[in-house]
Write a protein that binds this DNA or RNA. Sequence first.
DNA 1: TGAAATGTTGGGGCG
DNA 2: ACGCCCCAACATTTC
Length: 490
Amino acid sequence: MPPQQTTLVWLRQDLRLADNPALAAGLASERLLPVYLHTPSEAAEWAPGSASRWWLHHSLTALDRDLRALGSGLCIRRGETAAAVLAELIGESGANRVLWNRCYEPWAITRDRALKADLRVRGIRVATTNSALLHEPWSLLKSDGTPFRVFTPFWRAALRRGVDQDLFPTPTALPPPPAGVASLSIEALDLLPKVPWDRQFYHLWQPGEPGAWKAATAFLGEHLLGYALGRDRPADAVTSRLSPHLHFGEIGPRQLLRALLQLTGIIPEAVGQGSAARFAAELGWREFAYHLLYHFPQTAEHPLDRRFAAFPWAADYQPALRAWQQGRTGIPLVDAGMRQLWSTGWMHNRVRMIVGSFLTKNLLIPWQAGARWFWDTLVDADLASNSLGWQWTAGCGADAAPYFRVFNPVLQGERFDPEGAYVKTYVPELGGLVRQFIHRPWEAPAHLLEAADIRLGETYPRPIVDLKVSREQALERFGRMRAAPQPPSP
DNA sequence: TGAAATGTTGGGGCG
DNA sequence: ACGCCCCAACATTTC
């Protein structure tokens, strides 16, 4: 009789039961131990931020509940390194096999590669799989063998390659866990905030796999039709809000694309301009972000366009950064976005571009400072997407907005929030102002301000920067940078 | 997944 | 009636 097979399934950013290849591969074991390891110091400066930890707490809670319903449960441990904690767990459980789905952060790749080699040396079987991406970063390359740096050809190639639509089966029962392996409580991970800034989160979000499907079903069933037209208007609730669920792997892009294709009856190759194609392309941008971070791992910290390493950012920007973070810049659309972020852990995508343009171009604050703030405050904080987004905005990344493309938050507001509904939701002190001036209160005549009970500089700040002057200054600095001698490309 | 400056055109007011 | 001018409205160019 062969020795009993005991398998550890190490769950990381794949907190789901459905279409989970690592979990599916463990189902035939006699004993199966699903584990989550909290080792934040391994990620160093990219350990989960505050909002992300809130999400993680509740996602783990949901996963544990779902595992228990199938006769198992989540084993939670914490420690300095995953290697050390796994070694303990292997000792306690007698496991002879470890499975996980791959992560793609540079620090995680380095860690996992060493860990896999180490476990194999010690006679443990290890298998890793893909749960997070339609195509892994190394599997899609240009015909010359180099990585894509432009989105459109990347996404075309991804769709042409096609997507495996045979999902891994959702388990209906799980093998029992090995006896005598203790677990920490989720509370012991200290993921929840000490001061209750998260109250609104509970009304807006349902972390975990059931919540992910609730959001996906609502989006596909109710909002997809209006997506192409409404996705750029932040007051419209037509976006999917699936980003945090995708980040934690509570739902995967293969599942979403399959649901989308079944719903609309289109085939992946038929890329049109309709709502389904637009939404699929957003999944594509996520894929593109992972592609870039894998092939250019320095881009979480450093600009892909090396010329920007010498860009003359503002010298003393702390007060301006603080005003931006707190939503007190005096520019209504920017402040609305930053307050939405703070109070809900999320910001509409178009507004992310606008507040990012304002930070990097009007305030001349390094994009890394913005990326850090987003990392701490977004429930969907994702190293790949965040790095791509900020470099795109700053104009220093792959397929980025040209450096001279500076969003004017007043015009963007008038185009995409014409009634000012979004601004009024998050900047209530402007609620009484007529729509004509809602995006430019500093131009409103005194009697209208008075009627709206607004005293600029008291109840709402004056703009901390002149949009026209700062735009010209940014263009001038970008122009000088472009003219400077260029460093060798990486 | 721009904005602003500059150029062109055409309708209408007016002498 | 005609030419002149103004200036939206739209198009093109530049950043």
